[in-house]
Structures are given as C-alpha cells and as structure tokens.
C-alpha cells in the first residue's frame, strides 16, 4: 500500500500553517510563541543573570540552560507533570541546537535560562520549541549570529514528506521522523535526529525539503520580530 494523499490534504512538501508572536510574557526578559498546525510552543528567556552555585560558572563565557516541558493537558491522555527521560533529552538537544547561534563571550559567570512549554502537542514539538526559543533569545536582546529555525521532515509509507502531524507519525505502514534545526541565514545545521528507517536518496531529498521549509519559517520569525516594534 502506498501513501498517495496526506491525511490533511497538504502537498508532500507543504508545512502546516505557522504563526509566531514575540513578547507574550511581560515578566520575562524575552519571550515568544510559535504555532505550527495544532502544535503550540511558548518560550521564555531570563537573563543573562549570575549563575549559582558558583562552581557551575564559566569565567570565560556565559552558559545556556534550556528546559523543555510538555504541560499535562497538551496531549490527549494526561501527561504526568514534571521532567521525564524524554523531556530531559529534548532539553539537551535544544540547548545544543541553539548554542551555535549565540555569542556569550561578554557574559562571563552568567546563565541564560530558557524555558520552553508545549501547551498543545500534535507532533513536531521539539522543532516548534526551538523556533520559539530562538525568537525569545532574540527578543531578550542577546547577541546572535542568526536565528534558528527547525522543522521535522520524514517518510510516511513510501513518500518523503514535510512536517508530519501525529496521525502521520502513527501511520500503520511505518513512518520516519527527522527533526532538523538550521542556523539561518548561514544555512548551518545545528540539530539532526532520525527515528525510523530511510534510504540514502530519500534522506537527501528529505534534507532538501527541510532546508526549503526552514527558510520559510525564518521569514515568519523575522516578520514576528519586526512586527513587535512596527507601529
């Protein structure tokens, strides 16, 4: 059986509808909301502030600390609150995906705390989280080399697709999920994970789709940042 038509009538290389908003949390130094389809992520940045305990401080550069969390009502079946194996892993990969964009040499002995909350989940949450976090970091006025955009690509049945939703992820004939994060406008990949099976040619095609979609997301992000100050 082949996968001829996507469950929500999208084209194979078409992402879900995106929306971004900057400055959603007043008390944070920087914040942003990123929505793709039914997945909504909210990120808040606090800092740079002095890091305690002191032995964790780096006297040469600042430290980035990311915390990813899914709220208990974000999924159909209630998620037990608090960190778990999955969220700890995603916090770590998010941190590594965002770090190449930041320039923290002027913030010695400090920490920048990034909190990502998924308030509604329908696949692609880590990518939505990275997009929101990168916007929030820019909103916090931190020196950066560019913005980080992320999208999940993959294979459903026998077709290479962009931005899988939950239904496609659980496709009966098997599916492959590849989250990609890119530092734009440099076009450097900062996150690449793979869950499932895929052939080399299909992978390269998926990567190509991913790059194209990341630049689409980048435009949405830039517009969101500029809209906050445009009157």
């Amino acid at each position: 059986m082949t996968y001829t038509k996507r469950v929500d009538n999208r084209k194979f290389d078409e992402p879900r509808k995106m929306e971004a908003k900057v400055g959603v949390i007043d008390r944070a130094d920087g914040s942003a909301m990123f929505k793709i389809g039914d997945t909504i992520a909210v990120a808040a940045v606090y800092g740079p502030r002095e890091l305690y305990p002191r032995f964790l401080q780096d006297s040469e550069k600042g430290i980035l600390k990311c915390t990813y969390d899914m709220l208990s009502f974000s999924v159909p079946e209630r998620k037990r609150p608090g960190p778990n194996r999955r969220s700890v892993e995603i916090s770590l990969v998010t941190e590594k995906a965002l770090l190449p964009a930041l320039d923290l040499k002027n913030y010695a002995n400090t920490v920048i705390d990034v909190f990502i909350e998924i308030i509604q989940a329908n696949a692609g949450t880590r990518c939505a989280g990275i997009c929101a976090a990168s916007l929030a970091l820019a909103d916090a006025g931190l020196p950066m080399k560019g913005l980080v955009s992320a999208i999940s690509v993959g294979k459903v049945g026998d077709k290479v697709v962009v931005d899988l939703n939950k239904e496609e992820e659980d496709y009966e004939d098997g599916s492959t999920d590849i989250p990609i994060a890119m530092l734009l406008p440099d076009e450097k990949i900062t996150l690449l994970q793979l869950d499932g099976n895929i052939k080399k040619e299909e992978f390269l095609k998926a990567l190509e789709y991913g790059k194209k979609t990341c630049s689409e997301i980048y435009n949405v992000q830039v517009k969101a940042l500029k809209d906050k100050y445009k009157k």
Partner: peptide
Amino acid sequence: DIVVPGEE
C-alpha cells in the same frame, strides 16, 4: 530600520 540578528 529595525533589524534582526544575522541580517545583512
């Protein structure tokens, strides 16, 4: 002009 990080 308003610019974002990474803008030329």
